[in-house]
């Protein structure tokens, strides 16, 4: 698969999305969807051959046995659901298809051994953001008119300039995927021992976890005073002292005791990016204020109401009456 074939695949993909976007004619849309799925499958299957042609090696370290089928399933579901999301007439269904995209990309994250991000994605995106979208979609839904055969609004059915948009989008895809094919084999592959060393070093910052790990590996032992995890080419060690003994012992640490993904992400977040974390909190706070201010209902107040809200006397004809009412009301003494 040389670049010409890649461009051909992008043209086919653009045609597929264009066909799937056309209003009406169910058959045309289904044909477009099938064409698109075929293109994606072909591109995915053709990648290793292309890499071997270009002299590159598969870049990821060897992970679990045969993640390929899971990857193919998740990515096909994600891309198909994304296409369906932008082509569906009804906004509620679009949002539900986006939930499907989020779930399948959480699956991709699991394949990439980013467990924490996978679950955070499901909780934050599918659980919080999409529910907000659903609320607004249902809040802003127009009542379907009875004389209209289809219940959807006109602006949901007719796309705006699908041809130009598909052209622009898939030219971008051609450039991006060309870069991905050509640029990735030149990237430096990861140094696994160095990464492990770094992970052990990071673990030193979590003293309670180190104590727990030592107690787990050698019951009744505690890390010696000032002892840190030392990583050597043969593995990692820590100096420990057992209860009731006067000498220190060197305890080898098995690789399965490496810090988990959650520990690594959490430590990285607070150790490397503390200011960004604070800024993220400020951004969220400002977004909350902004949303409250924007969504507040604006009520036109008359002169009397404004004066009353400010705690001043009313001006109008009923000023005396309301003053009497306020005086007679329980607890209304001023």
């Amino acid at each position: 698969m040389d670049p010409k074939l890649l461009y051909f695949a992008c043209v086919l993909g653009a045609a597929a999305v264009y066909l799937a976007l056309r209003p009406g004619k169910r058959g045309v849309r289904i044909a477009g969807s099938l064409l698109g799925l075929g293109v994606i499958a072909w591109m995915l299957l053709a990648t290793p051959q292309l890499l071997s042609v270009m002299g590159g090696k598969p870049a990821l370290a060897e992970g679990a046995a045969r993640p390929g089928l899971m990857f193919a399933a998740f990515s096909l579901i994600a891309i198909a659901a994304a296409v369906r999301m932008i082509t569906h007439d009804r906004p509620v269904y679009s949002a539900l298809y986006f939930v499907l995209v989020v779930l399948s990309s959480a699956g991709l994250f699991l394949l990439l051994q980013a467990e924490f991000m996978a679950f955070a994605l499901v909780i934050v995106y599918a659980g919080a953001i999409l529910i907000t979208y659903m609320f607004v979609i249902m809040l802003a839904q127009q009542a379907p008119s009875t004389d209209h055969t289809v219940g959807e609004a006109e602006y949901d059915v007719n796309p705006r300039e699908p041809g130009i948009a598909c052209g622009v989008g898939f030219i971008l895809l051609a450039v991006l995927s060309n870069m991905a094919y050509g640029g990735v084999p030149q990237l430096k592959t990861a140094d696994v021992p160095a990464a492990q060393r770094q992970a052990w070093q990071a673990m030193n910052l979590m003293s309670r976890d180190v104590e727990e790990m030592v107690a787990d590996l050698m019951p009744g032992a505690k890390p010696a005073a000032g002892a840190t995890i030392e990583s050597a080419p043969g593995g990692a060690f820590i100096t420990v002292r057992r209860e009731g003994e006067a000498f220190d012992t060197r305890l080898p640490l098995p690789p399965e005791k490496l810090p988990s993904n959650v520990q690594q992400v959490g430590l990285d977040l607070v150790a490397k990016f503390p200011v960004s974390l604070e800024l993220a909190g400020v951004i969220l706070l400002m977004a909350m204020f902004g949303a409250v201010v924007l969504a507040r209902k604006q009520i036109e107040l008359g002169e009397d109401e404004i004066r009353e809200a400010a705690g001043m006397r009313k001006l109008g004809f009923h000023a005396e009456e309301s003053a009497e009412a306020r005086a007679s009301a329980p607890g209304g003494a001023r």
Partner: peptide, 22 residues
């Protein structure tokens, strides 16, 4: 063909999703 999933695969999926969103 799918036994070696490389970074390229993930980047292609990512690019495709981005372009569909665009």
């Amino acid at each position: 063909a799918l036994s070696h999933i490389s970074l390229t695969h993930y980047l292609i999926v990512s690019a495709a999703l981005f372009v569909i969103g665009l």
